[in-house]
Design a protein around this nucleic acid. Structure first.
Lengths: 191, 191
DNA sequence: CGCCGAGTTGAACTGAATCAAGAAACGTGG
DNA sequence: CCACGTTTCTTGATTCAGTTCAACTCGGCG
């Protein structure tokens, strides 16, 4: 049963869970389909839920000055959440938007925290996941620091094959930390 | 007793610990004084220990191509460790160097992992710390993406007051992701 | 003293941003 | 299904922050 839940499979790939813990986690999750451009979380809202993109594509973005900044993509089989606000309980500066019709599994973050408190193995998996997220962040820093715009684009294509045909170019440019103009030139190859 | 251990105080500020857990954590920690320029971990070594700079200054660095890249500073009362290698158990691409005579508290990371496994409250604090590290990484990404070299320098001065007089300029430049030439011009103000 | 690493300063260069204008794709209503 | 407006993408010209290369200064130390 719980094997059929891909969010649960991903969690338990970080650390094995007892059958009971797996069932508890499964029981707090709900699945729904959202259509393209649905906003899962608005800027200024307090986020309660953490999401998992079972199939589809979503992004986190925020507004910096005038511009829309894409912070993160989640594509088939990845978690996504407005992390800072979720942890602090404050209104979120970041929004979550579904970019194509998607199947999304989600759960209340407070339910997850409660399960962490009551089940040591879940807390353990949670710690491993947080560590993994930390390492991913480190890699992102290195990528921004040392790779040229073109190299970052190639890296993105390796990490998310086909994303260039699924997400609008401007969001990808903003994720890469460049302008859409530059990305357009990179793709043209004639730089 | 355990209150006198600042590394322990910092950990328990993330989540309260039982007296027993605090004692256990205290018991795996050792304190030592290292002199300026001591290398706590060489590149290529497998790291076993996690460190806490009680008083003093240390940095993490690695070699990228020909150049020495400073990844992180730890100044009075901060943790420092070769994180990726510590978690994977592989030889580290990063080294740890003490930059001024320093008092360092450290512990075997495997001891910490064992305590996490045996004491739920320690695991909980560990998860909170990992989440905190994750958020810090996010801020670092944003800083690199959007702030100019001068703004990043000003941010560093705010975060680590006085570091400019304690660490060689070239390490600071490299931490900021700029050349020492640029940093010199920024400090001169005549840009 | 003279050497050596750390820091400063100048001149030329460059990757990417900005400004601006045009082309293509997209969606919505008639 | 077409027409129109809007958004997305491309292309060109110009500008700028920060790099690179190179020479010079300063302070510490054998």
């Amino acid at each position: 049963m719980s094997n059929l839940n891909p969010a649960l499979s991903l969690i338990s790939s970080f650390a094995p869970l007892s059958a009971e813990s797996a069932d508890l986690l499964d029981s707090i999750m709900t699945e729904a389909v959202y259509s393209r451009n649905t906003i899962l979380l608005e800027i200024g809202q307090i986020p309660f839920r953490f999401h998992f993109v079972k199939k589809g594509l979503a992004r986190i973005y925020y507004i910096r000055g005038e511009e829309d900044v894409t912070d993160y993509f989640a594509i088939d089989n990845q978690f996504i959440g407005a992390v800072p606000a979720l942890f602090t309980g404050k209104p979120s500066h970041k929004a979550i938007q579904v970019l194509e019709d998607s199947e999304i599994i989600s759960f209340r973050y407070s339910d997850f925290e409660e399960l962490c408190a009551s089940k040591h193995d879940i807390e353990h998996a949670g710690r491993k996941m947080a560590l993994f997220g930390f390492l991913e962040g480190q890699q992102r820093v290195e990528s921004i620091r040392f790779l040229s715009a073109r190299e970052r684009y190639e890296e993105l294509e390796r990490k998310y094959p086909g994303i260039a045909n699924r997400a609008p170019l401007k969001y990808i440019a903003s994720y890469l930390g460049i302008t859409q103009v530059s990305l357009s030139r990179i793709r043209a190859g004639t730089q």
